[in-house]
Structures are given as C-alpha cells and as structure tokens.
Amino acid sequence: MASETNDTDGEQSSRDRSTARPIDNPIDREALERITARNPSRLGVGRSGPRPRTETLLQFRSDHGLARDAVLTHVDEAVVDELGLMKIQSGVADKDEYLARPDLGRDISEETTARLREECTTSPQVQIVVSDGLSSTAVETNVPELLPVLLDGLADRGLDVGTPVFVEYGRVDVMDAIGEELDADCCVNLIGERPGLASAESLSAYMVYGPERGTPTSKKSVISNIHDGGLPPIEAGAQIADLVEEMCERECSGLELREDDREFQEAA
C-alpha cells in the first residue's frame, strides 16, 4: 500500500484502442472482442509476418513519446499560479539530476526552508503538497479538479489547512521534510505517477501523519491510480479528505491505520 517512491503501479487505464485494426479473419471474432475489451494491453493487434504492423508500432512509439513527455516536461507556471500554490524546488537542480538522485528529490535546501517558514502558515493540521514526480501531465490534468474538492472536504470536517505548496522535482518523501519544517500534523502529497504505455496522466496521493524526515514507507497511506480512466480526480478528492480526517482522529497513518493489517502484523 505504500512504496519508497511513486514508481509502483505504473499505469492502468482504459485508453480506447478500438480504432486499432484487429487480427484478420479471427476464428471467433466475438471471443476476441471480449478478451480485448477486458484489458487495455495491446492484445489481438495482429502482425505482419514476424513483426508488428506499422500501425501498431507507430501507436506504441506515440504512447512511449507521451510517457517520456510526462516525465521530461515541466508543470506549467500558469497552472501553479491558478491553483494558488506556492512554488518551491527540491534539492534537485534539473531533470537529469532528478532522475539520477532520488535522495535529493526528497529534501529541501536551507534557503527553501527559510522561505517556507516565512511565507507559509506554520503548525497547520494538514499540509498539502503537490509534486511533479514522474508525470507533469498528471499534475496538470488532475490537480485542478481534485484540489478544490479536497479543500472543501477538509473545511467541511473543520480541519485547518496550511499554505498549499508546489514542489518542482519532488519525490514522495519530500512531504516529510516540508511537514517537519512546518510542524504539520499531517501531510498530503499529490504526485505524478511513473507513466506507462496506457496512461501518462495517473496521479497518486500519499499521506503521512506526524511527518518527519526518514519516516518509513509503512507509515504512509496512498490512494493511487487517480485519473479519468481510474479513480476520477474529484472522487479522489473526497476520498482523501475522509482518510485525512481518520488519520487526524486516530493520530496515525499507513499500516497502523488499517485494522486488518495491524491484526496481521500482530499475528506475525
């Protein structure tokens, strides 16, 4: 349920591949359609001799291009401004370093810390962080719908929310550093998931109660697969608000929050 970085469930989506030309002359066309409709993978796409068809290959390269773009592009400044997020940068200098040095993506510099303390509400119950992670596309597509629902939901529950922050080159655990510096009760990190060949716009929400640097992954909760073909972003916003409320009430997160997991751990 939680992982070191956000590169766990790459992608699950339902991109429409019905336009692709299926196998010529299948023995049982209906059965083939049932199989391909069940799974977004490249099933039943036919072949040309021992090779994929040109069309299949182009589609594959196009999807791969989208995935690379999601990783390598930057979240539009206009989106960050419109959402009213305060923009900071992790300890990483550029995309290459971001990919090579996950450790730097989990922390923030002293200057950034000073700025945070100056410009943000300190000691909030909930600190919201938005990170580009491995998909800028995921942030641009989902956060504008998700964030207002989440803020409404937290307000409805009487939880006080700090100044939402956008982190460029952020990893999941950057929320530990930010939460620790701002003395937040709990932290939510909305982060772009590693893109796959079926969806490049999947977002995850990682959550931690009592954030501090080095908090183990087992103490983090996650709601993943947030995108139009998975959990719709607005519905995710309401679900995150519910989970955050429970975290604040029970003063824990991750495996400790799940009764059945706790039973499992105690039995082990």
């Binding site: 409404d152 939901g153 409805d156 719709p232 607005i234 519905e235 309401a238 519910d242």
Partner: peptide
C-alpha cells in the same frame, strides 16, 4: 459514474 463521495460531500 464513480462520483458518489464527492456528490455526497
């Protein structure tokens, strides 16, 4: 559609 929680909220 999957939107009951947000609608309920």
């Amino acid at each position: 559609q999957n939107c009951a929680k947000v609608l309920g909220q």
